[in-house]
């Protein structure tokens, strides 16, 4: 376990150092790339709470990512451009949606849960596509990036630092929840539901809370993503994005604290490097993903740090 902690610290420092070095070398683009890693990692941290700890394989988390994005886009269109309130609105709206979706979906389990979360995400996807007020399929551009007190968010580095700090906050929240009573109950619900029931604890409220918290974190990431690309579109809500979030988690190592960060870094780098090498990049991306599932169980962190404590 010691070893995994050192790897986590190294990963966190690496993500911080990368954009600083890039700026020193005059390569501003890599700051943007690092920001993308941080934001996707935060979205995956959210999903990891439900999926990694709770074993709730949500195939519809793109819905919450997109809700966060649209919260940022719509508020910005109403001249509401301060980041912290936007994050709160994004998290609240996604939390309410998640409470509703979760209340219905958590009655099911296994594949049914995977598919019903997908169904809800598809509903929201089609709704947004055919809703003309905020651009529909064309999406909604943000005129300028939203603002944060005392920080010039238009510059790549300050914006990266905002995302980085939020990612660290998300990771801390994840670690705190995991190691507390709530996390213990949640993991018990995943591993042995009957035993939990025998102790007189109902798994449903625990799972619902995890699902809602998970959605709220992912929504904040969605709001940051909208600011990063200065654009929101229904493709943020597509089932491909739900799939990519799952891919990120598995790539990094399911249920691992820093799995989402390792996975997001790997995924973004592969997409970027393969994409500039060949137009058939998706073929090779597929091969790498396949190889990871078949031969590197435990993901990147599992590969370096060895078996998980509670795998």
């Amino acid at each position: 376990m010691e070893r995994e902690r050192w790897i986590n610290i190294a990963l966190a420092l690496l993500l911080l150092a990368a954009p600083l070095l890039a700026l020193a070398a005059g390569e501003a683009f890599y700051v943007t790339l690092a920001t993308r890693v941080a934001v996707l990692a935060l979205a995956a941290v959210g999903l990891n709470l439900a999926l990694g700890l709770g074993g709730l394989v949500s195939f519809g988390h793109a819905a919450f990512f997109g809700i966060g994005g649209y919260a940022a886009g719509i508020l910005a269109a109403q001249e509401m451009t301060a980041m912290p309130p936007i994050w709160i609105v994004a998290a609240l709206v996604a939390g309410i949606m998640a409470a509703f979706i979760g209340a219905v979906s958590l009655r099911t389990s296994g594949v049914y849960f995977i598919m019903i979360t997908l169904a809800f995400a598809q509903m929201i996807y089609y709704f947004v596509i055919s809703w003309p007020a905020y651009g529909g399929e064309d999406g909604l551009p943000l005129a300028v990036r939203n603002q944060f007190p005392f920080v010039n968010t238009l510059k790549p580095l300050p914006f990266f630092l905002i995302c980085y700090v939020l990612l660290l906050a998300g990771l801390l929240l994840f670690a705190w929840l995991r190691d507390g009573r709530f996390g213990a109950a949640l993991q018990a619900a995943r591993q042995n539901e009957t035993r939990l029931a025998a102790l007189g604890v109902s798994p449903f409220p625990i799972r619902l809370t995890a699902f809602v918290l998970s959605a709220m974190i992912t929504a904040v990431a969605g709001a940051l993503y909208a600011d990063l690309t200065r654009f929101v579109s229904p493709s943020m809500l597509s089932w491909h994005l739900s799939g990519e979030l799952i891919v990120i988690i598995i790539l990094g190592g399911t249920g691992r604290l820093f799995g989402p960060l390792a996975g997001a870094a790997l995924f973004v780098l592969m997409e970027f490097l393969l994409g500039s090498l060949t137009e058939r990049w998706q073929f090779f991306l597929g091969l790498v993903l396949l190889g990871t599932v078949l031969f590197a169980k435990g993901g990147l962190i599992g590969l370096i740090a060895g078996k998980a404590r509670n795998g």
Binding site: T32, R36, G139, T229, F231
Partner: peptide, 15 residues
């Protein structure tokens, strides 16, 4: 994918 197009545009412009 719009997000990917934005990322490529950023790279082409900045890098």
């Amino acid at each position: 994918k719009p997000e990917l197009a934005v990322q490529i545009a950023d790279k082409m412009i900045q890098s």
